[in-house]
Design a protein around this nucleic acid. Structure first.
Length: 1103
RNA sequence: GCCGGAGUGGCGAAAUGGCAGACGCAAGGGACUUAAAAUCCCUUGGCUGGUAACGGCCGUGUGGGUUCGAGUCCCACCUUCGGCACCA
């Protein structure tokens, strides 16, 4: 495309100018502002220290800083950056002191992987990438204050990341104050105060704590699980360490073998690593954790005080996953132990017909009997599914083939065979029927198909490979022998094999196989505390060790998962809740529902008797309704609605000491260590106490920053230690202690960078107090935007992608709250307003990717159309938050618009001369000098029509900027330019005002034309950046006559011209008299006339 | 499965419950030009009547509803994108 205007000369010119003038430098309280700086001129400041109250209202506008990848900028980056830049420039014009910084989230895996391959230090790679990103971002003309640039990999920066880690390490969460406090305020329990030194330490939470799985144990405050330390000091240390916000835990973690590191829950998507998509398995390892769970309630509640999109808040809420319910203790039959379960539906307690523990649950081994109890169905003994593969078509074929032989076709609970047997049985049979192996022959196998309705009658099927199915009858002895081989002979055996099965599965496999529930009976029974019923205790991997208490009461009638499990193993189903308001149950219900419900067929009986909607009972009813069959001698829930029933039963449980109201969160503590090189080393050393137990200690602040050692080889060590363990000299300190070899995850640096920008060069502290309080607005009287609920702002506007909705934003909020509690920052929340920019797709509407070959390189766009057109297009595509496809033709459109703006201001003849001169060369300044202003621009006053066009534009652009509707602001400017092109004479003042509005969007061309206009007008060069934003005069927008649409029965029929301010009667008669209205009301009676003055008339006619 | 968001011309999109499609792209026609590019002007939701001027009907995912009036509000459904996913 032909060049529309000399952006290639203009853009570098103004970028240099801004650089030299330091136009966008933001001034802190206490800074000396040079008198010649345009900010000082605008606000009458300068040459002396300016205190916070004298500065204009602050506006902190922040981009999510990028990871400087080797691929360079993609077109998605400038979308958010342009939006924030436009608003930053707009705010400067409005008179704010604007902070608009940029930096680099530069720790990360790619540089390390490159180092592993090539031996090149990650810092070298990182710096090269930063240089490239800097070049690209600078060429877009963003108004960043580059004096505040930072990189998370700078020792001057990560010194303070390590320092904040020490704050976490040296703090605990006080549940009384609901705040983080210095660890020194943590009181030792009595037994550690020297009173009874000889007694062993007690578990903190009695029965419940002792039975918890390890993940829950962390939540309960039991950190490092090592041998009970002997002496008082060691025991005190152990106690303290178990309470710190940063603690060590030996817990099953997400281990990614391909990446050679562990990952946080948040970094695991569908059982695969978020980076690279590699499989992730569960593996117990010693890891650093951050106690984010202690802040769950505040992280949730404070969402109400910030201005984020509902969807984003919802994502955070879901991630935190608060649920209210109750913990209930179930006595194990014949044992001293109780098992505590968590449920959100205590109202269905009477419907609990069995209990499930997670396979890892600590009590399993204590309660399991040596022998199977009497009359345990075989199906309960073997819950491990065997591999098989088939299709429904095959199953149908099997049914057809079986039919001629008189084989009764019954769909049974699905059950499979050991692989070696299965190999001999056509999968079609195995898939469709419950098949029990009896005997394997050379080329065939004898199996039994079990009829669930009568276990004593079995048909045996002889399956001849590749031949039709034939029926044979096996003897009872043969069948019994086969069953003995197939089913575990003791509960311990069954549990061991099930645990082996569950542990061998990665999370991914577990999800994939989740179609059918698995589990095994432990042989033990529990007593349902409300009705004394003996219910079987199972283990199954659909119960997670890490949530709640790791154990559930199963209410199959009213929980989908329990229902599925109950059907699978033929467990009893007790209905205690109905979905409507009718009273279906009375206390004297005529049938023994429970007994009958053990048979699935009962449900149909139930339906005909009690309910007309069988569909509700083909699955569990999990909604709210009315309780029934829920009564004992002391309490009855019958007839109560769910909410009431919950309250009543919970109160009763608490009274009886059987349970208590509880709140649970899905949120887990943050796994904070990585086995990598390119991250912040932990400022931690390990020592040994007198008993030989290892313990950790923090390095003093004076030891920061702790730099990573230089390595030759960046791979993990042969024995699986992190790369840092290779640096033997670094590893061991003179006193014999050794350094922590894990590093922090990439999220660490991005948790607080917005604070460092405020005071990026401060060597004494992570951010100066006065500076922090001015910019974050906690105590800033000049803060313009106030948060009505929290009365603080923090960052006024934060823009970035949704990919950080739960990770970065949750972590950063967590750190901020800790810093707030410890008095280091002045707001409870870091980011007052947050906007997610939408994804930019390829031209084909697919997500951009190299493999699709639909990527757009920003450098190409810049070269062909210039930065201003690029910026303008990114904003013109559609609403910032929307996902939208890229279209290079669209860039041409806005580029043409800028060309029209240029030609409006420029003398075409002189531009031809310039074009000619350019072919022979010359300095940019000389070439630009050849271009003259359009002679049609004159110092004349604008006509009313011109003023109206201008002020309509001011109104629209201003309102749209306040609402971040950049696309429609741009279209308003296009409308103005289209009209201004037709003006014969062009009033200079009006065009100047237009340039002011254009400047935030297309700053280079606006500055160039502004400069030319000023010299034409004989005005001294003035800063466009700090020139005041125009205001519109509503009086100029008022029309003399209005065109009012006239509808008949809601359909547009005519448009009438009336004087502005015409009253209802005038409008009414004018409408009735309108030419095109007449035929539509002729012969009809006018029932009603709706008149909206200044808007519309609607005549309602009938007949 | 659960929770959010979104469905409007050939495309990106506009529209405090009040003239649907602003603005831009693409397309078609014209002017300028030796020609092309660029630029400027005109047309452009669908169907349809009229030689024409100028009209009519339909139209915002589907089906209902509220209203004088619905793209906008309510109910049900469909499609799609994003998030979560055995969290008891």
């Amino acid at each position: 495309m032909r060049r529309q205007y000399p952006f290639h000369l203009i853009e570098p010119k103004w970028q240099q100018h801004w650089e030299q003038e330091q136009t966008f430098k933001a001034f802190n309280p206490g800074d000396t502002i040079p008198a010649e700086h345009p900010f000082a001129k605008r606000h009458g400041l300068g040459d002396s220290n300016v205190a916070a109250p004298e500065l204009p209202p602050k506006f902190y506008i922040l981009d999510m800083f990028p990871y400087p990848s080797g691929a360079g900028l993609h077109v998605g980056h400038p979308e958010g950056y342009t939006a924030t830049d436009i608003l930053a420039r707009y705010r400067r014009a409005k008179g704010n002191n604007v902070l608009h910084p940029m930096g680099w989230d530069s720790f990360g895996l790619p540089a390390e992987q490159y180092a592993v391959k090539t031996g090149q230090h990650p810092r070298v790679t990182t710096e090269a990438n930063i240089a490239n990103f800097t070049r690209q971002i600078r060429s877009l003309g963003f108004s960043y204050d580059w004096t505040r640039e930072l990189a998370t990999t700078d020792p001057d920066y990560f010194k303070w990341t390590q320092w904040i880690f020490l704050q976490l390490y040296n703090s605990w969460f006080n549940p009384e104050t609901n705040k983080a406090e210095p660890i020194s305020t943590l009181a030792y329990p009595e037994e550690l105060n020297g009173a009874r030194l000889s007694e062993p330490q007690q578990a903190t939470a009695g029965v419940a704590a002792s039975q918890l799985g390890s993940a829950s144990a962390q939540a309960a405050g039991c950190g490092l699980e090592s041998r009970a330390p002997g002496d008082l000091e060691a025991r005190r240390r152990h106690f303290r360490d178990s309470k710190r916000l940063a603690y060590v835990s030996e817990a099953p973690v997400n281990w990614c073998p391909e990446l050679g590191t562990v990952l946080a829950n948040e970094e695991v998507i569908d059982g695969k690593s978020e980076v690279g998509g590699f499989p992730v398995i569960r593996k117990p390892m010693r890891q650093w954790m951050l106690r984010i769970t202690a802040f769950a309630e505040r992280l949730l509640a404070d969402l109400d005080t910030i201005d984020w999109s509902d969807s984003l808040k919802e994502m955070q809420r879901n991630w935190i996953g608060r649920s209210e319910g109750a913990e209930v203790d179930f006595q194990v039959d014949g044992h001293a132990e109780k098992i505590r379960v968590f449920t959100t539906r205590p109202d269905t307690l009477f419907g609990a017909t069995y209990m499930v523990l997670s396979p890892e649950h600590k009590l399993v081994d204590q309660i399991v009997p040596d022998e199977w109890p009497d009359r345990v169905p075989d199906a309960w003994k073997r819950g491990v599914p065997d591999e098989r593969a088939s299709s429904d078509q095959d199953a149908e074929l099997a049914v057809k083939r079986a039919a001629p032989f008189g084989c009764e076709v019954v769909e049974l609970s699905r059950r499979s065979l050991p692989p070696e047997i299965l190999a001999l049985v056509p999968s079609i049979v195995a898939r469709r029927y419950r098949v029990i192996p009896i005997e394997a022959l050379d080329d065939a196998v004898i199996v039994a198909i079990e009829n669930p309705s009568d276990l004593d009658v079995m048909d045996a099927v002889f399956v001849s490979l590749g031949k039709p199915i034939q029926i044979a009858v096996a003897s009872r002895t043969e069948i019994d022998a086969a069953l003995q081989r197939y089913y575990p002979s003791s509960p311990r055996e069954a549990i061991a094999s099930y645990r082996a099965y569950a542990a061998s599965k990665s999370d991914l496999e577990r999800t994939e196989l989740a179609k059918e529930k698995t589990g095994v009976f432990t042989g033990a029974y529990a007593i349902n505390p409300v009705n004394g019923e003996k219910i079987p205790i199972w283990i199954a991997d659909y119960v997670l060790a890490s949530y709640g208490t790791g154990a559930i009461m199963a209410v199959p009638a009213h929980d989908g998962r329990d229902f599925e499990f109950a059907r699978r193993f033929n467990l009893p189903i007790q209905v205690v809740l109905l979905p409507n308001q009718n009273t279906w149950f009375s206390d004297n219900a005529p049938v023994d529902m429970k007994k009958e419900s053990a048979d699935p067929r009962f449900l149909s009986q139930f339906e005909t008797r009690y309910h007309n909607h069988p569909e509700d009972f083909q699955s569990a009813f999990t909604g709210e309704g009315e309780a029934g069959f829920s009564k004992n001698d002391e309490i009855s829930l019958n007839g109560l609605k769910t909410t009431e029933a919950k309250a009543k039963i919970t109160a009763w449980l608490e009274e009886e000491g059987l349970g208590k109201r509880t709140i649970n969160y899905k949120l887990r503590d943050w796994l904070f260590s990585r086995q990598r090189y390119w991250g912040e080393p932990f400022p931690i050393v390990w020592k040994k106490d007198t008993a030989g137990n290892r313990y950790h200690e923090a390095l003093p602040e004076s030891a920061l920053p702790l730099l990573p050692p230089t390595l030759e080889d960046y791979k993990p060590t042969a024995d699986g230690q992190p790369p840092l363990a290779r640096a033997k000299d670094w590893l061991t300190l003179p006193d014999g202690s050794t350094r922590e070899t894990n590093t922090m995850p990439q999220w660490a640096g991005s948790c607080w960078y917005y604070l460092r920008y405020l005071d990026a060069k401060n060597g004494a502290t992570f951010v100066g107090k006065e500076v922090e309080s001015y910019w974050m607005g906690g105590a800033n009287p000049n803060s313009e935007i106030r948060n009505p609920k929290a009365a603080t702002t923090g960052v006024d506007l934060y823009v970035g992608g949704t990919e950080h909705a739960v990770l970065h934003l949750l972590y950063a909020r967590f750190w901020h709250k800790v810093l707030f509690d410890l008095g280091h920052v002045s707001t409870a929340e870091p980011f007052f307003k947050l906007v997610n920019q939408g994804l930019i797709l390829g031209e084909d509407g697919q997500k951009m990717s190299k493999s699709r070959d639909n990527t757009v390189n920003p450098d190409d766009i810049l070269n062909e159309f210039g930065a201003d057109a690029f910026r303008l297009y990114e904003m013109f595509m559609g609403p910032l938050q929307d996902t939208k496809p890229w279209n290079t033709r669209g860039v041409e459109g806005v580029y043409r618009f800028l060309g029209r703006v240029w030609r409006l201001f420029i003398d075409e003849q002189s531009e031809k001369e310039y074009e000619l001169a350019e072919t022979t060369g010359g300095s940019p300044a000389a070439l630009l000098g050849l271009i003259k202003l359009n002679p049609a621009i004159q110092e004349i006053s604008a006509t009313p029509a011109q003023l109206k066009a201008l002020h309509a534009c001011i109104k629209k652009v201003t309102e749209d900027l306040d609402g971040m509707r950049f696309n429609t602001a741009i279209s308003a400017m296009m409308v103005f330019i289209n009209e201004a092109m037709t003006w014969e004479t062009k009033p200079a003042a009006a065009l100047k005002t237009f340039l002011q509005m254009l400047a935030p969007f297309a700053p280079h061309v606006a500055e160039e034309l502004w400069d030319r206009l000023n010299s034409k007008l004989g005005i001294q060069r003035s800063s466009l950046t700090y020139s005041p934003w125009p205001t519109f005069d509503p009086a100029l927008l008022v029309e003399d006559t209005l065109e009012i649409p006239v509808q008949v029965n809601g359909k547009l029929r005519d448009v009438i011209k009336v004087p502005a301010g015409a009253d209802k009667a005038t409008l009414e008669s004018a409408a009735l008299a309108a030419e095109k209205v007449k035929p539509f009301i002729e012969g009809k009676s006018v029932k009603k006339i709706i008149v909206v003055p200044g808007k519309l008339v609607n005549i309602v006619a009938a007949g």
